[in-house]
């Protein structure tokens, strides 16, 4: 057996190419990026309508509502993570590609975060403003959403890979991911609430950061395994 060094592709090149492709695809179809954002805004707008416009009430439920809305919006966009790749056959190309599948899975997660998580973080201050959250609370909210959506993109890619090509995959994906996303949701929302109550934020942010690292080390491999299984 000969070692074919020159044929080993550069992992980072393959990864970058995938991210660029996915993000530019998302830009070409702005609906894919905008729909979850509208969904996020609408879910957040429902709560004041059913609960009442009291400032204090809004401030106390605000962090939780925004976090739940962000989680649901992320789930909505996760559903199509591997769908178009599955339909046009590029997923099979990824499976036989010389670049390790886990690296490609990481690239898919990164592209998903860039086209859904990051816009969500950027839009959140506007929604937070309507909930009368103060500037410092909004800052922490953005920080927790930033870390949390990275985790959700990684964790969600496992669920999306497991359910790709299945009937009724959407409902199934939510059923698989929601309980697993509980820690992110709890720490994200509670950290913001704690800041609003005048407490420290370090603990919650450390946890969210640690969770990102954990997901970074697990999710790409689990996603790769799941993709191989669901694409035979």
């Amino acid at each position: 057996m000969t070692i074919q060094d020159e044929q080993l592709p550069d992992i980072s090149t393959g990864l970058l190419a995938l991210i660029v492709r996915d993000v530019s695809l998302a830009v070409k179809r702005p609906g894919d990026v905008l729909n979850p954002l509208f969904f996020f805004a609408m879910v957040a707008a429902l709560f004041p309508l059913v609960i009442g416009p009291g400032t204090e009430q809004l401030q106390s439920i605000g962090p939780g509502v925004l976090w739940v809305a962000a989680l649901l919006a992320t789930l909505l966009s996760l559903n199509s993570l591997f769908l178009s790749d599955h339909e046009d056959g590029s997923l099979e190309q990824m499976l036989v590609s010389p670049v390790p599948l886990a690296a490609l899975a990481l690239g898919k997660s990164a592209a998903h975060w860039l086209s859904s998580g990051l816009p969500l973080v950027l839009v959140s201050p506007v929604i937070a403003m309507t909930y009368q959250l103060s500037l410092s609370v909004t800052g922490v909210l953005m920080l927790t959403l930033l870390l949390g959506t990275i985790s959700l993109s990684l964790l969600g890619s496992v669920g999306a890979a497991l359910t790709v090509g299945l009937h009724r995959g959407t409902a199934l994906l939510s059923l698989l991911i929601l309980p697993l996303a509980m820690p992110v949701l709890i720490f994200g929302a509670r950290t913001v609430s704690l800041v609003a109550a005048g407490d420290g934020v370090a603990g919650g942010l450390y946890f969210l950061g640690a969770y990102v690292l954990l997901m970074l080390s697990i999710a790409p491999f689990a996603t790769a395994a799941a993709l191989r299984i669901s694409n035979e």
Binding site: A226, I229, S230
Partner: peptide, 11 residues
């Protein structure tokens, strides 16, 4: 079997 095994391990 294998798909649910991945889920069980992540879980």
């Amino acid at each position: 079997d294998r798909a649910s095994a991945v889920l069980a391990m992540v879980g």
